Simulated scan of single mutants.
Amino acid sequence: MFYFALFINIFSFILFGIDKRKAIKHQRRISEFTLLLITFLGGTVGALLGMVFFRHKISKRNFLIKFGFIVLIQAAFIYLYRKYS
Score class of each variant (00 low, 15 high):
residue 3 Y to C: 05
residue 3 Y to W: 13
residue 5 A to L: 08
residue 6 L to K: 01
residue 6 L to P: 07
residue 11 F to K: 00
residue 11 F to W: 04
residue 11 F to H: 00
residue 11 F to V: 01
residue 12 S to M: 11
residue 14 I to G: 01
residue 16 F to M: 12
residue 16 F to S: 07
residue 16 F to E: 04
residue 17 G to Y: 00
residue 18 I to S: 04
residue 18 I to A: 02
residue 19 D to Y: 07
residue 20 K to R: 06
residue 21 R to I: 00
residue 21 R to F: 00
residue 22 K to M: 14
residue 23 A to F: 03
residue 23 A to P: 06
residue 24 I to L: 05
residue 25 K to Q: 13
residue 27 Q to C: 10
residue 27 Q to D: 13
residue 27 Q to R: 13
residue 27 Q to T: 13
residue 28 R to Q: 11
residue 30 I to H: 01
residue 31 S to N: 11
residue 33 F to V: 12
residue 34 T to Y: 13
residue 34 T to L: 15
residue 34 T to G: 07
residue 35 L to H: 09
residue 38 I to P: 15
residue 38 I to D: 08
residue 39 T to F: 02
residue 41 L to V: 02
residue 41 L to F: 12
residue 41 L to N: 06
residue 41 L to W: 08
residue 44 T to R: 11
residue 45 V to A: 14
residue 47 A to D: 01
residue 47 A to M: 06
residue 47 A to F: 05
residue 47 A to I: 03
residue 48 L to Q: 15
residue 49 L to F: 14
residue 51 M to V: 03
residue 51 M to Y: 04
residue 51 M to C: 06
residue 52 V to W: 12
residue 52 V to M: 13
residue 54 F to S: 05
residue 54 F to P: 01
residue 55 R to H: 12
residue 55 R to F: 02
residue 57 K to P: 04
residue 58 I to N: 13
residue 59 S to P: 11
residue 59 S to L: 11
residue 59 S to K: 15
residue 59 S to R: 14
residue 60 K to L: 02
residue 61 R to A: 08
residue 63 F to N: 09
residue 64 L to D: 07
residue 65 I to T: 08
residue 66 K to I: 05
residue 66 K to E: 00
residue 67 F to R: 06
residue 67 F to C: 10
residue 68 G to D: 05
residue 69 F to L: 13
residue 69 F to W: 03
residue 70 I to E: 09
residue 70 I to S: 08
residue 70 I to W: 09
residue 70 I to Q: 07
residue 71 V to E: 09
residue 71 V to C: 14
residue 71 V to I: 15
residue 72 L to I: 04
residue 73 I to L: 14
residue 73 I to V: 11
residue 73 I to E: 00
residue 74 Q to Y: 00
residue 74 Q to C: 02
residue 74 Q to N: 12
residue 75 A to V: 10
residue 75 A to H: 02
residue 76 A to T: 07
residue 76 A to N: 05
residue 77 F to C: 07
residue 78 I to L: 11
residue 78 I to Q: 02
residue 78 I to V: 08
residue 78 I to R: 01
residue 79 Y to M: 06
residue 80 L to H: 15
residue 80 L to D: 12
residue 80 L to F: 15
residue 81 Y to S: 10
residue 82 R to G: 13
residue 83 K to Y: 13
residue 83 K to F: 15
residue 84 Y to A: 11
residue 84 Y to V: 12
residue 85 S to G: 15
